[in-house]
Write a protein that binds this DNA or RNA. Sequence first.
DNA 1: TTGTTGGTTATCTTTTTGTTAACGAAAACC
DNA 2: GGTTTTCGTTAACAAAAAGATAACCAACAA
Lengths: 225, 225
Amino acid sequence: MSKQTILVVDDEQDLLDLIEYNLQKEGFDVLRADNGLDGIEMAREHKPTLVLLDIMMPQMDGIEVCGHMREDDELKHIPIIFLTARSDEKTEVEGLNKGADDYITKPISTTKLISRIKAVLRRFDKNEEKIQKLKVHDLEIDKDRYLVLKDGEEFQLPRKEFELLYYLASKRGKVRDRQTLLNKVWGDNIYVVDRTVDVHVRKIREKLGDHYIETVKGVGYRFKE
Amino acid sequence: MSKQTILVVDDEQDLLDLIEYNLQKEGFDVLRADNGLDGIEMAREHKPTLVLLDIMMPQMDGIEVCGHMREDDELKHIPIIFLTARSDEKTEVEGLNKGADDYITKPISTTKLISRIKAVLRRFDKNEEKIQKLKVHDLEIDKDRYLVLKDGEEFQLPRKEFELLYYLASKRGKVRDRQTLLNKVWGDNIYVVDRTVDVHVRKIREKLGDHYIETVKGVGYRFKE
DNA sequence: TTGTTGGTTATCTTTTTGTTAACGAAAACC
DNA sequence: GGTTTTCGTTAACAAAAAGATAACCAACAA
């Protein structure tokens, strides 16, 4: 496997140095940018495996950068971890809604940083390194384009719905409880109520039909074998 | 599955009470200690599955406790989650570097606490990918899929019926009395009348046929050898 | 503005789970 | 042999749990 590249966007040079040093020690390639615009630029050019994004930056803040990335077909699949000041809880929530995959509060412990990064990569890797395209029953689930094909017809599912469907389909036949689904699809450190899963399942069923995802009462959900 | 034990070390009794109550409600066994020394003592004696450790304590603080545990071959593998006061950022970093697996800031939201604990346990759970498939006679009892296969045909049993069948099948040939079955399948701390077992056995027989589970009069039930 | 996404919540249904009582077979007692 | 007691089976019913659904809100983009 080729080396994984992490793009770090932050306006504090000292912090950049520290993070770069530690990531390199772990065997990652590191790209750095000290403002949002350059960050996006670099992301477009190098397609990093993951982006570490400070929220508070002059000119263009992290949330905005994240927003742009999520709209760019080439970049929307790249996992993003926010760096945020401790007190700043509001932006934290806001950021997650924007499509971040995790967030870490400053000051940053390097162990934690590394382990979070690895956790997020693990979450995505399983899918990424293997098949980008799942074919199940009459569905074709295309992770590259975030698109589902059902006998020729294209369905553009929203990100979360897509990822939930993708995860379940990749574990075809196996039951997963709500908490596991939340951890795998939403992320370990993200707190939403577990009924959220139900609602997303319902929305998927609404669009694709209800014979793909099965309910196992008292246990969880499962993609039909 | 034997119950998981969590050791909570904190000098605030109220908080101990609160945490204990919530953990028990989730089905964990709880051990408590109100200072670092006792904490280590208890850890040595009972080998808990996980330790919740307050950082700020008189005499011996959490970080020190963590340090001791990490040096003890018997205890070094036990996951530790720190409880820290929000403001106290320096020790937090220190703690993580000392080998904690996660930390939670006070004041504590119990939902968050529980889900963090479960996340850490999941991370440590090696048997995640363990095969949980039993093949007995012409039955295939697949816990991963929560399905029973009888020569090709799928049976979706309700959760309790499934778990009862699974338990009996896993102890194939051995008789278990009703109380044991209740304890193992339903759980130690919930009370239901033991006739309930009969009813569930009957329902299983109704669906799969009555030659799998045998009655041993005056004793209990057994999965046919 | 309107539409989309992501998430929450309250209400409605369905299913599961548990209790009880009647029944019957076998064992034990006389 | 007849009677009593013990024990499990079964069906009917009640209670509780779980999930589906719809309506709602907030944030944001077009």
